[in-house]
Design a protein around this nucleic acid. Structure first.
Length: 314
DNA sequence: AAACCGCCCAACCGCGCTCAG
DNA sequence: TCTGAGCGCGGTTGGGCGGTT
């Protein structure tokens, strides 16, 4: 809770309302900077680092504190994580009212969840309807389908503050163009695709072809397209098949995730993966998820989901 | 009712980057 | 050019809470 640093008392642990007040007043007066002077001025016995963290994670205006991540937000996190990697602060900039800590916590929770799902051997159906297995089922259901997001120009984020109360931060899709990853993947890229449920039923609008845009995009709302370029950094972390880091892309992609929605990371790498698929590697995915995997889910599990159009309809 | 378990989240820690002196 | 302070970021931890057994 507390410690010593250069003989000075440094408080640690939970923050009190009084301390929050001090930080708020400090920011009002000096702005969110020069955090270390909070301590040097004797305002609080906490490190500047701690004060900054408190401000960023709890005291900043327009934060969605106490508001759980919506499915859309979760989907955004999943997609952006696939694009950017564990760049939580960066991902958080796409989620109004969310902090990097929020995103990080969401992701780690999700990872644990997926890990547990994968570790848990499929029990007999009679056991699956109760207890922890029910939790696993519920968790599996929470695996949301993903799309590929093309971040808009940072300037557009200035309007995000006003969106913080939307049920989904995607309510205003000016922020993103969403790409159903089946559009990025050749129909036979992953044969599994045809077995999968999808929540994506929106009409697809193809972007004008653009060599610098590897993705087709569509927007959820019928609105003027803002054809902004794919941010270069959104791809810099995506190694190609020949890249030594290429396989790392799949480290975070548990089989269940692929199963519940193979669009997750595939979408980000699909354009570059095509080469390897054509080289006969695509079949490897079949080995990852046996057909019997679906036998272990309750038959009504996906009843609420719309069936995926057949590949001929794409 | 109590114990157990898992989830969520606030907060800390360490590392690396930036920049002023 | 070097150095140290300040800051930002990602990883990790621990406690509270709610649900289940």
């Amino acid at each position: 809770m507390q410690g010593q640093n250069d003989g000075a008392f440094i408080k640690k642990g939970p923050w009190t309302a009084e301390e929050d007040e001090v930080v708020m007043n400090f920011v009002k007066k000096y702005g969110p900077r020069d955090w270390s002077s909070i301590r040097s001025q004797g305002l609080l016995p906490r490190t500047g680092k701690s004060c900054r963290l408190r401000w960023v994670n709890k005291l900043r205006p327009n934060l969605k504190t106490g508001c759980k991540f919506s499915a859309e937000e979760e989907r955004i996190v999943i997609d952006l994580q696939a694009q950017f990697g564990n760049k939580w602060a960066r991902i958080a900039t796409y989620l109004p009212g969310r902090t990097d800590n929020d995103v990080k916590n969401l992701w780690s929770t999700r990872q644990k969840r997926l890990a547990r799902i994968m570790q848990t051997p499929s029990p007999p159906t009679s056991q699956r309807n109760k207890g922890k297995i029910k939790v696993s089922h519920e968790m599996a259901m929470r695996e949301v389908p993903t799309t590929n997001f093309i971040p808009m120009e940072e300037e557009s984020s200035s309007s995000r503050k006003d969106q913080s109360c939307l049920p989904s931060c995607l309510g205003n899709s000016e922020m993103f163009k969403m790409v159903p990853l089946q559009d990025l993947v050749k129909p036979n890229w992953l044969n599994l695709e045809t077995n999968l449920p999808t929540l994506e039923a929106s009409p697809i609008h193809m972007m004008p072809s653009n060599e610098s845009l590897p993705n087709c995009v569509f927007s959820q709302l019928p609105q003027p397209q803002l054809n902004l370029p794919f941010l270069p950094e959104s791809q810099e972390l995506i190694p190609g098949p020949g890249d030594p880091d290429f396989l790392d892309l799949f480290d975070h992609l548990e089989a269940s995730e692929i199963e519940s929605n193979p669009k997750v990371a595939i979408g980000s790498v699909a354009p570059k993966l095509e080469g390897s698929a054509q080289n006969g590697r695509a079949g490897d995915n079949d080995a990852m998820i046996p057909d019997s995997f679906f036998d272990n889910f309750p038959p009504d599990m996906f009843d609420c989901l719309e069936p995926l159009p057949s590949s001929s309809e794409w």
